[in-house]
């Protein structure tokens, strides 16, 4: 047998194959799918979700889970708008200050999340879920349930300014993906996520400060959620307390579809990129080929199952919960 055609390689590349297969499938049904304009549409739709998914990837690699994204994205989006308006309402004056501040806020929310999880010894599922509630609640509180709008042209350039047909935000997201990849493979923290996910007790026995790594993971995730919050505002020109709605399921589904194992230690940023693209290609493709609205949730569900089935290494797991 060819040495490149091993089982390991088949499993590693399965998600990408699924993605390519889907593109071919949708193109065959409607050639309009395979156009630069449509790809731009897919990438814009995927941009904020990808940032959320990358954030949660770090957590899942550690073998934990983070469900606070909807609250964090909602709160950061809303506060970004307020800050942006308070500092001049345009990037040209002082609005840019809002960006680093909001990233810090995201990190702070993640920090609290990590503290609650690690210090109070509450499983991350519950801790992050509750923090998510608090985040959404805080967003409701500051907006009073209203919508906040931003119409600064310089800021909206993220969406409107196109380079080679793709809006600026796609390149920004690309930059953050590279940053995430860099953290994952070239920093101690990134590697320690894998150590914790691969064997928490062993990592502890090797002298690793597992608790610190866990908290830092949530901080990092929070920062990426904040990026998603800002991008969500750039995309829609407004924010409200529910700006983060649906991100939880979409992002975690994408991560798993991309081949990151929920039990930790396996997969990474590139898997997540592919996973997010798979989910968004399915979403977009169903519209392009004219599938009735009411069918789309069901079909997405079934296709996600197929994608997970195709991209998990069933021999390496004894049972699944």
């Amino acid at each position: 047998m060819n040495r490149y055609l091993t089982r390991e390689n088949a499993i590693r590349w399965a998600p990408l194959m699924v993605l390519i297969g889907l593109v071919i499938l949708f193109t065959a049904i409607n050639p309009a799918f395979f156009s630069q304009r449509n790809f731009a549409r897919i990438t814009v739709a995927a941009a904020p979700a990808l940032m959320v998914a990358i954030g949660v990837t770090f957590i899942i690699v550690m073998g934990s889970i983070d469900l606070s994204m909807e609250g964090t994205v909602g709160l950061t989006a809303v506060l970004f708008c307020f800050l942006f308006l308070a500092t001049g309402g345009t990037l040209a004056v002082g609005g840019w200050v809002a960006m680093p501040l909001i990233l810090l806020l995201g990190a702070a929310i993640g920090f609290v999340n990590g503290l609650v999880h690690v210090k109070l010894r509450i499983p991350s599922f519950m801790a992050s879920l509750a923090i998510g509630f608090v985040g959404t609640g805080a967003a409701v509180l500051v907006t009073g349930g209203d919508i906040v709008k931003i119409d600064d042209d310089t800021f909206r350039a993220l969406l409107t300014w196109r380079i080679a047909g793709f809006p600026l935000m796609v390149y920004v997201v690309g930059g953050f993906v590279l940053l995430a990849w860099f953290i994952q493979s070239h920093t101690t923290l990134g590697r320690n996520f894998y150590a914790v996910g691969g064997g928490e007790e062993l990592a502890h026995a090797s002298g690793l400060n597992v608790r610190r790594v866990r908290i830092m993971g949530f901080v990092l995730a929070g920062m990426f959620y904040a990026v998603a919050g800002i991008l969500q505002v750039a995309k829609l020109g407004q924010a409200e307390s529910v700006s983060g709605a649906n991100f939880m399921f979409i992002s975690i589904t994408s991560v798993v579809v991309g081949g990151v194992a929920l039990w930790g230690g396996i997969g990474g940023v590139w898997n997540t990129v592919v996973g997010v693209l798979i989910v968004n290609v399915i979403n977009n493709g169903m519209v392009v080929i004219g599938l009735p609205d009411f069918l789309q949730d069901g079909v997405l569900g079934l296709l996600v199952i197929v994608a997970v089935v195709l991209s998990t290494d069933r021999r390496s797991i004894s049972f699944v919960k």
């Binding site: 975690i252 589904t253 929920l262 009411f294 069901g298 569900g301 199952i305 997970v308 699944v320 919960k321």
Partner: peptide, 17 residues
């Protein structure tokens, strides 16, 4: 071998449809 997190979500999608 699909985690229940995903499988039930997908079935939920079917229900919604």
């Amino acid at each position: 071998f699909v985690p229940s997190f995903i499988s039930t979500l997908a079935v939920g999608g079917v229900c919604f449809s």
